[in-house]
């Protein structure tokens, strides 16, 4: 069972890396504590620390400030051939780390599938 069978999107690969570094770091800290090896202990603290910066920098910031597509960048004065915009160029925000679409029905703090609100 490889990483590709677990992770289907780049966000899920980021999740696996974050959780793996977190787990290895903390378990390593415990093991190095028991063994009493300070250098190894310090190294595992660093591994744990990296997981937090990794999650913030690679997954969350890129999600909140996603790459925007400039329409003029893909417009060729009508001379272009379809598809004019490739699927990956379209702005399709996904949940960071989970790699799934946002649940639009929950955005208003109620479930639109179960409640109808007229403001």
């Amino acid at each position: 069972m490889g990483v590709s069978s677990i992770a289907k999107t780049p966000e899920q690969v980021a999740l696996i890396l974050a959780v793996a570094s977190l787990s290895v770091g903390i378990l390593g800290c415990i093991a190095a504590s028991v063994a009493g090896d300070f250098i190894v202990f310090f190294a595992f603290v660093e591994v744990t620390s990296i997981s937090m910066f990794f999650v913030l920098a690679l997954a969350l910031i890129s999600s909140v400030y996603p790459r925007r597509v400039k329409p003029e960048g893909v417009f060729f004065c009508g001379l272009g051939k379809p598809p004019y915009v490739y699927e990956e160029e379209v702005y399709q925000p996904r949940l960071p780390l989970l790699g799934e679409r946002f649940d639009e029905s929950l955005e208003g703090y109620y479930d639109r599938r179960a409640v109808k609100v007229e403001r």
Binding site: L15, A18, V19, L22, G25, I26, C29, S33, F41, F42, F44, V45, T48, S49, S51, M52, V55, L60, L95, P96, L97, L98, E100, F102, D103, L106, E107
Partner: peptide, 23 residues
Amino acid sequence: LLIYASFEASTVAGGILILFSRR
């Protein structure tokens, strides 16, 4: 140092759990 490492690890796990609301 171990408290610090646990602090950071709990932040990673807790922060990702917040995302499960999918908003």
